[in-house]
Design a binder for these strands. Structure first.
Lengths: 233, 233
DNA sequence: AACCCATTAGGTACGACTTATTCAAGAGTC
DNA sequence: GACTCTTGAATAAGTCGTACCTAATGGGTT
């Protein structure tokens, strides 16, 4: 998922991005383009392009006569999906999952409220379908199927909110949900209460009840946060 | 604020980014690296680095034998501060300001609630100081001074929330507030009610009252949204 | 302490070559 | 004759290496 050999650029970028965001190259450490070119056995051109991209993500800073310096964490573009993926793959996944889940708990209730006002008939139908899909896959170790429906469900809500910024958070939510399923040792079937809440949320949106949609989504968020507290200290 | 001549790369990137996000190069249009190199009178090297950065923002897609294609809006990295700046400088600033303000109205109340729990004594002090600064500059056409305090105030709240994702939204909020002051023809002094709310929010955070902090911030957000409705149809 | 200069590593430019796509022309089939 | 399939030439991005420019740095000189 992280790297293919579809181009030298991609490979170098992904490797460096991962090393930096995993803390392997701590803030302040200096990279030299020539060394990188040697290390990856690519031309300086490729390295420079990679550095420029990392620079645009504020992961590094390139200064003459000094080299490419890793910048402090506070300046990262933490909303860049690529950065999120790197960080989720790295060492502090727990911390990252937590802050992203808190973000979700702030955004999604509001988005759900808006969705209840703006969702089209088609979106309502697809939402219901996904909720039913979650019910159908909620028992018997069908975690992957459940995950797919879960992601699609939340994506629809965010899109239906009609707000561009919310809609673009779909990828982030997808990463969080996938991370939770794949890495948080989720042996068991999903919490039945959560499944019910999703069904009820679909109903609330369909019936155009913003208050209910917001309230129910808050409950879902509380559940997700609680789950984090239980599974990760 | 947008562009300096601090490097060819920066200039080309900024110009192209602006042209693309302002819809001047609509999605689907194709750019050729050689043409760009000619147009900006720079080497292909520089153009390629710029294209790579635009690609990392998902503004364009570079394919062999076809050129650099502008991607549809839905794929932009709309959380990238650079993209936000370009879009706010472009044609659809109103739409952009609205969706960003809605985002704020979702995030900031939650952030304020967390800030009331986690803010350090120092942060509380600075918050109060900024609130007083807002009061002091709220009358007599001191819009720039007011703006500075306003930005600092919201930044502190977001930082004090202790959540990294919230904290990194400080730049976005700053852009929104600056955009509002500079472009929304804000002849008059700020709304006294809003000033009062900021003072009360500082108090609530200092006294560690999350519910009050959240409630007050919601009121501030409602005011901001209402202001948009009045000034921009 | 202030100044100057050599060193260093990134910034830019250019030219050559490679590779993936595309598009169109031509061969083959029904 | 219309259609599909193959093939090959044209094209624009991808990669590379080198040469040179420029700014920041650190040490050495006054």
């Amino acid at each position: 998922m992280t790297t293919q050999s579809q181009g030298l650029h991609t490979h170098v970028l992904d490797t460096l991005g991962l090393e930096i965001s995993s803390g392997q190259c701590p803030p302040g450490s200096v990279l030299r383009t020539d060394e990188l070119a040697q290390r990856f056995d690519v031309s300086r051109t490729v390295v420079r392009e990679v550095v420029r991209v990392l620079e645009s993500m504020h992961l590094v800073e390139s200064r003459r006569r000094v080299g490419v310096t890793v910048r402090p964490t506070e300046t990262w573009n933490v909303y860049d999906p690529q950065v999120i993926r790197w960080r989720l793959a790295g060492a502090d996944r727990p911390r990252q999952l937590r802050s992203l889940t808190v973000l979700r708990s702030a955004i999604e209730p509001v988005a759900a409220g808006l969705a209840a006002r703006h969702a089209t008939a088609e979106q309502c139908a697809e939402l219901t379908e996904r909720a039913l899909g979650m019910v159908a896959t909620s028992r018997g170790q069908q975690l992957e199927g459940y995950l797919e429906h879960d992601i699609a469900f939340h994506r629809i809500v965010l899109n239906a909110s009609g707000n561009e910024m919310f809609a673009r958070l779909g990828d982030v939510v997808a990463e969080v949900l996938a991370g939770r399923t794949h890495h948080q040792v989720m042996f068991e079937d999903p919490d039945p209460a959560a499944v019910t809440l999703h069904v009820r949320l679909a109903e609330a949106v369909r019936e155009g009840d913003p208050e209910a949609a917001e309230r129910i989504t808050k409950e879902i968020a509380v559940g997700a946060l609680h789950e984090l507290d239980v599974l990760a200290p």
